[in-house]
Design a binder for these strands. Structure first.
Lengths: 340, 340
DNA sequence: CATTGGCACTCGCGCCCAGGGAGTGCCAGT
DNA sequence: ACTGGCACTCCCTGGGCGCGAGTGCCAATG
């Protein structure tokens, strides 16, 4: 492929910019009139080149051009100067974030809502994989005759808790003792290690002859052992209904289905967790079928002592990258800096 | 309006039955062939009557007939023999319900999912209004330097808990003392009364000179004082995409919007909380604009010492009432009988 | 030689129109 | 009281047509 001249770049940029707001194929006349100081004929020649390079696509002979996924990719990588969020916007977003937290919302969910509200797209938040989360402490609280709450305090902002049925009516003192046992074996290790440690302990002599101790360990396993996949929050999926590209009901169904099923999106987010900065995954690049015509923008964040998660948005390929990219970055930042 | 003859009833019933499965207007020929031992001509006459009575509607001259909301109403009230769920179905549903609970799911959410899964419609669960919930006990757990979890144990299956920031670094003993204070004033009363009791206590001498006591009360207020509206769970709204009536994108949007906004649906559910048995609210009867063409089927359930909530489904008016009505009733039953 | 205006061409879209089909209402016959 | 027959109405579909948008190419131009 030949290199792009300055002019090619100008035209491609203009096509994307216009298409992002109009959601329609753009013609040479529009470009000439609104974006470029060139005659329509010249623009047509350039557009012809771009099409041959696979960066633009013509839905049919007498239509304007639409950027291809590769076109968007080039635009995002080379042509786009992301403007930073203005201080005002940042303040507004941050205020929104914190006010929600004070009201007692879950941090993850809050971040998802925020992304969604500001971008008008679907907000995504992937919690750090639980395996890597550092266990600080476990508490057991008696709720009733055979019910207790087990609380897992980690180095993350979220506190996990779960109501469990107990095998007997333990007193408050019993539960405290059990919690102490659990903490002895478990505190300071990651959740991933916890399983192994508990298993090892279970075999030791001390446990064999101490029913309470054994029961405590079992409880810990049952409550948090099987929490395999990091939780994925999908917020405000119905916003997609607003986007004109989803007037096509088939596409919408497909996307909803993949969003609901979660596992595929989860894999995509997890894959981006390692890389720095903001990631952009355009349409077909993801090889997920529900994602045709959609772009996923993500950014990693860190929480606690090194565990990392990912936030992002999903929306039509035709989205305002200039705004959304810094937005996702900023929210990831908020989340990373967030101290509880 | 003249009374309906036996024949009128037969025809109306047949129209509804066919329309429920076909989702299309029903013609006289179909009815004569598949449901009735009458010639098409006779059927036409009867259908004409029914139309004049406002029970059927003809979308246009050369189309078949569709039941009106009033037609459905009459069908549901007088013509429908709800068959009970078979023992097998009941067992299956119950097993599904309980297996989910063992896995630690929220009871409310679980019930919603269940309704949705079995009916292929949108599941709704309204928790009992918190005001009427009996407070059994409050626990405070130290999570970190300035963080604590406040746990509200009621006579309901769900346990409410919330992470709060504290104004100082309270020790475990402090928090236990505070919890004791709170329980002294609060336990045994409903959440509705709690507010007043705390306010009263705050003015008493004992509190004026005891900072910890004051702080405890304040905490209780902040955490659970403002939980106004009972929580409404809307599960699996995207199932609506499957229904052929929602190929019309405008209607779908409207319904999604009201589902998302919740307050209107919430009001409808709350209204049915008082009445026994299964309630059916058909289309325009609700006066909620997003509800045209939709039916809401609900049933009340009770939990704890007398507080009542509501479960239900929402779907197109054209739904299989024969199956759905007993289903909603049964799930309400499950929830009422559920003991934790 | 890059740029431009001109021009013929293509193709989707909206419109009209006719034909077929589904379903009805009415009427006369049993 | 039913029913068969019949004329009628109206939607739906498909084909034909004109319009407009947009293109590609070419010859002219600075």
């Amino acid at each position: 492929m030949t290199a792009l001249t300055e002019r090619h770049q100008q035209v491609l940029r203009a096509v994307v910019d216009d298409h992002v707001v109009s959601s329609q194929p753009v013609g040479s006349a529009t470009l000439s009139r609104r974006y470029l100081d060139l005659s329509p004929a010249t623009v047509r020649n350039v557009m012809g080149d771009l099409e041959r390079m696979g960066l633009l696509h013509q839905p049919h002979t007498s239509a304007g051009r639409v950027p291809t996924d590769r076109g968007f990719r080039l635009y995002v990588d080379d042509l786009l100067k992301v403007r930073n969020l203005s201080q005002r916007e940042r303040d507004r977003i941050r205020a929104e974030f914190e006010s929600g937290l004070d009201a007692g919302d879950d941090v993850m969910r809050r971040a998802g809502h925020l992304l969604s509200a500001v971008s008008n797209l679907v907000g995504l938040v992937l919690a750090p994989p639980l395996d890597e989360v550092l266990v600080k402490r476990i508490e057991l609280v008696r709720l009733g005759r055979r019910r207790a709450m087990i609380i897992l305090i980690t180095d993350q902002p979220v506190v996990h808790n779960r109501v469990v049925r107990t095998d007997a009516d333990y007193t408050k003192a019993d539960l405290e003792k059990m919690a102490r046992y659990l903490n002895e074996t478990v505190s300071g290790c990651t959740l991933g290690e916890m399983y192994a440690r508990i298993e090892a302990q279970m075999k030791s002599d001390r446990v064999q002859y101490d029913r309470l101790r054994a029961r405590a360990l079992r409880l810990g396993l049952e409550a948090f052992g099987a929490r395999d996949e990091g939780a994925l929050y999908v917020e405000e999926a119905t916003r997609l209904l607003e986007q004109p590209e989803f007037l096509d009901i088939g596409r919408m169904k497909a996307l909803f289905r993949t969003l609901e099923e979660k596992s595929q999106i989860l894999a995509l987010l997890r894959a981006t967790i390692e890389s720095e900065g903001v990631n952009v995954l355009i349409g077909s690049e993801s090889e997920v079928d529900g994602m045709q015509g959609c772009t996923l923008i993500t950014s990693r964040y860190t929480a606690g002592r090194g565990a990392a998660g990912s936030v992002g948005v999903i929306g039509p390929t035709r989205m305002d990258y200039r705004r959304i990219i810094p937005l996702v970055g900023y929210v990831a930042n908020l989340l990373s800096r967030h101290r509880y």
